[in-house]
């Protein structure tokens, strides 16, 4: 059985209540007209997913509504985002940025694939993930092989790589942040900072 969402249940029971009272007065035609005129609530049959607003560190709770059942081969799509009324931080409210979150998902300038600006070029162009990662790995390996410092002047093992820096993202999960840290530090990179400071 598909669980009925809170809002789907409310919308359904309001329509049922209206129909029942009209029928009691003998308005069966009116009842049909009302039923035909009621527009289905636009969040009925959507999947609600709890998440956290992408922007600032207040971390307001949001509910993301998606339509389309991927198990049936349909394409799932985010149709609405609103504040989570249960969340202690924001109690359902959102600021003008959080309230417009759907449009950052749907932004026309959103990056949907890796892009490269080649040396001397004045524009970005698409590149496949494989080619992009190969290119990055090659550049990192060459630089690390040339400049890695295994021991300092006193002969102590330091395993440093000072000629490359890494800027990590601020809007990531704990797991991504942890994996990023492990990868970057394991190479010996010291210049490692976070976009939150920029």
């Amino acid at each position: 059985m598909t669980p009925i969402s809170r809002r789907g249940f409310l919308a359904g029971s309001a329509a049922a209540a209206a129909a029942t009272s009209l029928e009691a007065f003998g308005f069966s035609e009116a009842e049909a007209a009302v039923a035909a005129a009621v527009k289905p609530f636009h969040l009925t049959n959507t999947t609600e997913t709890r998440n956290t607003c992408t922007y600032c560190s207040v971390a307001c709770g949001i509910i993301v509504y998606a339509k389309g059942d991927r198990r049936k081969g349909e394409k799932a799509d985010i149709v609405h985002i609103e504040g989570d009324a249960d969340h202690p931080t924001n109690r359902g409210t959102l600021c003008p940025k959080g309230a417009a979150l759907r449009d950052i998902v749907k932004s026309e300038t959103r990056l949907t694939q890796p892009m490269v600006r080649r040396p001397g070029s004045d524009r970005f162009e698409p590149i496949s993930w494989d080619s992009a990662l190969d290119k990055i790995a090659r550049a990192l390996k060459d630089d690390r092989d040339a400049n890695f410092i295994e021991k300092n002047e006193a002969g102590i093992t330091v395993n440093r790589w000072l000629t490359t820096g890494f800027l990590a993202a601020s809007a990531t999960t704990n797991e991504t942040a942890y994996a990023t840290y492990k990868v970057v530090r394991s190479t010996g990179i010291l210049a490692f900072d976070n976009q939150a400071r920029v």
Partner: peptide, 18 residues
């Protein structure tokens, strides 16, 4: 501004209308 978040929301239609 209240309606923008750094340089992210200039990519957002609603915030760019506001």
């Amino acid at each position: 501004l209240t309606e923008h978040f750094h340089y992210w929301t200039k990519n957002n239609h609603v915030n760019s209308v506001l």
